[in-house]
Nucleic acid binder design. Structure first.
Length: 277
DNA sequence: CCACGCTCCTGCGCGC
DNA sequence: TGCGCGCAGGAGCGTG
């Protein structure tokens, strides 16, 4: 479930514990995640110094001289900084131990991943095909409009396609579209440049707001058993099926797109050609 | 290239 | 109280 803001906050949360530190131990309790956790990590990593902790899309990259440890949180994953000797709980699958502390991965549903990427890590198939970072300057209404051009895909599915745009998951897709007053089923290629400008802005604002909400919980990453939930936030659309729209009072509706629940306000987010700016 | 649907996994909430 | 069911979802992958 973590989307870009949660992953970004996770990176910031674990970086102070890892940066410049030498790995003392790797513990793999459950190697069967999305992909098998490499068996040789426990031999390969100890002694190596963490150069940096970065994020690309929803992938967390712990960088070493020889390569990168890639961590993906999947839907239910979380990373916490805990005392190295704290007893693991159920679903605590992986520890990266640095001295007295450990960065601990918990992932009940095991959709997450821990992989070793030799340099150049960004050439790895999982990373090479990733799309734009929505919080970077490279992303704006113009490039979004270009991505939409010629595509019949509903706009909600397009902004969730990590090969085009990274980090926007199911929750923030619905929220961004609500803010921009665009119906989720609108064929991407029919969106005007102006509406793409607005959507790009709303995606950035939605992610920024979530980031701000998560910033206040940074200390939770240290010495905490942690949770996997989203930041405390008031959603406009997501999960509000049957409730009143916070803007116009209409009833929020739910539909399924790409096997995913989608929430929108039928009044604020009109799909007809009469929809204005 | 494009669009779509299937799949992995477990916890939770619901109806009976 | 407990059982079984449906749902939740990131993203690779296979298919047409």
């Amino acid at each position: 479930m973590p989307e870009l803001p949660e992953v970004e906050i996770t990176c910031r949360g674990i970086e102070p514990a890892l940066q410049g530190q030498a790995v003392t131990e790797v513990r793999v309790r459950q190697p069967r995640l999305r992909y098998p956790v490499p068996e040789d990590l426990a031999e390969r990593l100890p002694g190596q110094v963490v150069r940096a902790v970065r994020r690309r899309g929803k992938y967390i990259l712990v960088e070493f001289e020889a390569g990168c440890l890639l961590i993906h949180l999947g839907m239910s994953g979380s990373l916490r900084v805990v005392p190295a000797e704290r007893a693991p709980l159920k679903h605590d699958h992986f520890d990266l131990v640095v001295g007295a502390q450990a960065v601990r991965l918990r992932d009940p549903r095991r959709f997450g991943a821990v992989l070793w990427l030799p340099h150049p890590a960004l050439s790895h198939p999982l990373l090479a095909g990733l799309g734009l970072e929505p919080l970077e300057d490279e992303f704006d209404g113009g490039v979004l409009h270009a991505l939409c051009a010629g595509r019949n895909t509903p706009i909600k599915l397009l902004i969730m396609d990590s090969h085009l745009l990274v980090g926007v998951g199911n929750i923030y897709a619905s929220e961004s579209l609500f803010r921009s007053r665009i119906h989720p089923q609108t064929p991407a290629g029919t969106l005007s440049r102006q509406r793409c400008e607005r959507l790009a802005t709303c995606i950035r604002e939605t992610l920024h707001d979530a980031l701000a909400a998560g910033g206040s919980s940074l200390r939770d990453f240290v010495h905490s058993d942690g949770g996997s939930g989203y930041f405390q936030q008031q959603y406009f659309a997501y999960g509000r099926d049957g409730e009143a729209c916070r803007v116009c009072g209409s009833t929020i509706r739910r539909l399924v797109m790409g096997q995913r629940a989608t929430f929108f306000c039928p009044r604020c987010q009109r799909r007809s050609a009469s929809a204005r700016s």
